[in-house]
Structure formats: C-alpha cells, structure tokens
C-alpha cells in the first residue's frame, strides 16, 4: 500500500508517548479531508525492545507500523534517527511526514528537511487546506501572532506538531507491523547516546499540585516573589514560574511551567505578570480554572484564562491574598 502520511512515533523505553496518537489523529483528519484511505497512514517506530509498542500503535491508528530496530538506534541521537527517517521517507514517498514538536521531534525534523532538501514548518497547531494547498498554522513572536505558512510544492511536506494540535486517535485499527533494517551501523555514527538523567533535583513537584500560583517577568525581580508566595500560602498551593524567571535565577528550574519545564494540570492556576508565550501556555492550559493578572490587556494569557484582571499585580495579588484569608476564616 502506498503511504500518504508518515508519522514519527515516539516512545520511552518501549512505552508509546501520547504525542504519537495525536499525530495519528492529525493524520486521519488530513486524510479524511483529502479523501486518502486510512490504509495510507503509517507510523515509523525507531528503537529497541519496541515490539509491544509497535503492536499498540498498529491497533490504534496506523495501518502499518514500520519498525526499525537495532543497537545503533537504541537511544535517541539525531545522527542515527535522521538516517532512518530519511531512508523510510524516500522509500515510502509520503505526501506528508509529521513529527511531534517535542525535544527529539524538533531535533530530528530539521536534519530530515536538509537531508531531503525540503522545507519544514515547526511548532504547528493546525493543518488546513486553503486555495488548493496545505497551510500550516503556528505561533510566531513568542505567541504574539499566528502565522500561516505555505511550504510549496516539494514533497514530502514536513511539520512538527505541537501537543494538543489534534485529539489523540482513539478508534481501534488492525494495522500490520513491518520490520525494516535500521540501516545504521554504530560505526557510522558521530553521536553516541549516553543516558537520560534527572535534571537538578528539587523538592517541588508541581505536577501533583492542586493549586499553583505562578509569577512571570512582570514581577521584575527575585525579591518581588513574596507577593506570589503569600498568595500560594494562603491558598495552600505551590509557586510556579515562567521561563524568564528561572533563567534569571529568581527561582530554581523545578518551578518552571511550560514546554521546557513541567506540564501541570491543577484545579486552579493563577498566572501573575505572565504574558503567556506559547511555551508557557502549552504547560498549563490543561488546568481546571485559570486566573490571569497582567497589566497588558493584549497579553495572550487572557486568551486561555477563564477570568482575568488587567492591572497592577502588586495591587491585585495582595488584595486577593487578603480576600482568600478572609474567606477561609
């Protein structure tokens, strides 16, 4: 069967990563729109000890799971993986190859683009047909604008898709699993996977928090975090932060919420002085109830918040702390 959409599956030690099913969901959506057969949607799975993962993906969205296994691709390196993706893309000639906009998807996709000599759209949130062509939507200028990209007539079209761009494919399928030689020898490689390890150890685990009060660049300094801590304490919650805050050392890295920090889904998320760069939003938009406090009425954070206050956080936040304490008696 020919291939129209090829999805690069992701897994961790053989456990399929959720983004894989979202990519398959996107692939089915695109195929449906184009009248392509579901049988033309394939996934590429690279690694070792992945037989179970392959069967799972074949049962949930992929008509065929192409499995490239071997010692040279056991741990992720861009050097090894791009060779496999390029070889499979050449032999399958898909119209489109979808990658997750994940640390490794974003790492390997440009290598494949340069190898195949085709353009790539990164961090996309939607794919649509417009004027007879595929158009890829994404955020630019750190979320200030939505950019719509055309990639021209070269094939395959390459895109990395943001988490949440499409609902995970959930129907049952009866795909087949087809092993292919990885075609990469360890001696060919100029990169060697060493290990995956924990980052800086910290006592804070925001992923388990029911209430998070986060501060951003708008606070202006490490010494200003007291207002955030006070509110978090009054609510019995944890303190979170956006990337600039941890980059500037105002708080340790483990407090960082977002694509390069932790993804959180508390019942209550209060964002103070956070403009809402897409990298932050992807890490917190799954929260139950979102309150945003920012002086800029145009800040993208108000687009995802349930309730917002446009104003000076140094007035609003202490007033809120006081009101919370009163309410709790």
């Amino acid at each position: 069967m020919p291939c129209k959409v090829l999805v690069l599956a992701e897994h961790e030690g053989g456990a399929v990563a959720g983004i894989t099913y979202e990519l398959l969901g996107m692939a089915h959506r695109v195929a449906g729109e184009m009248g392509w057969a579901p049988a033309e949607i394939k996934a590429l799975l690279i690694g070792s000890g992945i037989a179970g993962a392959a069967a799972e993906i074949a049962a949930r969205g992929a008509a065929e799971v192409i499995v490239a296994e071997g010692p040279a691709v056991q741990g992720y390196t861009g050097d090894a993986w791009h060779r496999v993706v390029e070889a499979v893309a050449k032999s399958e000639s898909p119209e489109m190859v979808l990658f997750g906009h994940t640390p490794n998807g974003w790492d390997v996709a440009p290598l494949v683009a340069a190898g195949l000599g085709v353009p790539l759209a990164t961090e996309c949130s939607a794919i649509a047909r417009e004027s007879g062509a595929f158009r890829f939507s994404r955020k630019a200028f750190n979320g200030k604008f939505v950019q719509v990209i055309d990639l021209g007539t070269a094939r395959p079209l390459l895109a990395t898709m943001q988490k949440g761009a499409a609902p995970a494919f959930s129907a049952a399928t009866r795909g087949r699993v087809r092993p292919v030689p990885a075609g990469v020898g360890e001696a060919d490689l100029r990169a060697r996977f060493v290990e995956i390890k924990k980052g800086q150890a910290g006592a804070v685990d925001l992923t388990q928090a029911a209430i998070i009060v986060s501060g951003g660049r708008g606070l202006g300094g490490a010494d200003k975090f007291a207002v955030i801590r006070d509110l978090a304490q009054a609510l019995g919650g944890q303190v979170g932060a956006s990337r600039p805050v941890t980059d500037m050392g105002w708080l340790p890295h483990e407090h960082q919420v977002g694509s390069s920090g932790v993804t959180v889904s508390p019942k209550l998320y209060i964002a103070c002085g956070i403009s809402g760069a897409i990298q932050h939003i992807v890490g917190m938009r799954g929260s139950g109830y979102i309150v945003a406090i920012n002086k800029d009425a145009e800040a993208p954070i108000f687009g995802v918040a349930d309730v917002g206050v446009v104003g000076d956080l140094f007035e609003i936040v202490p007033a809120l702390t006081k009101a919370v304490k009163e309410a709790k008696g």
Binding site: P103, A191, V194, S260, V262
Partner: peptide, 12 residues
C-alpha cells in the same frame, strides 16, 4: 533538555 526536568546526555 527533555520534558519533565530530565536531560538526555549525548557525546558528539
């Protein structure tokens, strides 16, 4: 930098 405060170590 990987997700969830982890690091992938690679030699180039």
């Amino acid at each position: 930098e990987m997700e969830n405060n982890r690091l992938l170590v690679v030699d180039l």
